[in-house]
């Protein structure tokens, strides 16, 4: 475990906790895309099947359980909680799941390391994670009015992706640990999706004004 990986995992954890805390304490999911949250739940459910087959470390297992638990809780809150669900803006969150899920499924069937169920699901989850933030970014751009917590959530997620790339570079040089090129490409694509958001996030932070994305 290197510092980039640890910092990446911690920002990832913080992003999820920020979102859960926001929803739980202010009982509102305004500005949060249910589509993105459902896609993340699907990402974790397909990727972490290995908790049943492989043991890596207690840290690894605990983190996987947290990500699974938190993503499904968030979906539950938005769909089922009687107060939270009222704040969900269904009209604005119109991105279609299958628009992202189907291409990722096809891509996983075409480009993968090994043709096994577990490996295909893992590859699918890598592709899907790369694009799962899109409904959230579209929603932010549409509503423009971004509250602090939602802004921080997206910022922390972007930070997590950037730190993972540094982690791969570090691991390559120190451990000769090769991350498969599928992971590299998906990771880079995912990080680039945040570039635009980062730009406006830092601008608003520098100028000390409320974060607003251009329409």
């Amino acid at each position: 475990m290197n510092i980039f990986r640890l910092a990446g995992d911690m920002t990832h954890l913080a992003s999820v906790l920020v979102l859960l805390l926001k929803i739980h304490t202010i009982k509102s999911c305004a500005g949060v895309s249910l589509k993105t949250q459902e896609l993340y739940a699907l990402v974790f459910a397909t990727r972490y099947l290995d908790i049943f087959t492989d043991f890596i470390s207690v840290y690894n297992t605990v983190m996987k359980l947290i990500f699974l638990g938190s993503s499904f809780s968030i979906v539950w809150y938005i769909r089922r909680h009687k107060i939270v669900r009222r704040s969900y803006d269904k009209e604005q969150d119109t991105f279609r799941h299958y628009f992202l899920v189907l291409p990722c499924l096809l891509l996983a069937l075409l480009i993968h390391e090994k043709f096994t169920v577990k490996e295909l699901l893992w590859t699918f989850s890598i592709y899907l994670e790369a694009v799962a933030i899109l409904p959230q970014l579209v929603l932010l751009q549409r509503t423009r009015n971004i509250d602090n917590l939602t802004g921080q959530y997206v910022f922390l997620l972007g930070a997590y992706r950037s730190l993972y790339i540094l982690n791969w570079i570090y691991r390559y040089f120190t451990e000769r640990h090769f991350v498969h090129w599928i992971t590299w490409i998906a990771g880079l694509v995912q990080t680039l999706l945040y570039a635009d958001f980062f730009y406006y996030y830092f601008e608003s932070w520098k100028n000390n004004v409320k974060l607003q994305l251009p329409a």
Binding site: R5, D9, H12, I56, N60, F67, E113, F178
Partner: peptide
């Protein structure tokens, strides 16, 4: 072929 991609990340 050596095992290069151990999936120990999250």
């Amino acid at each position: 072929e050596e095992e290069t991609d151990v999936k120990d990340e999250l």
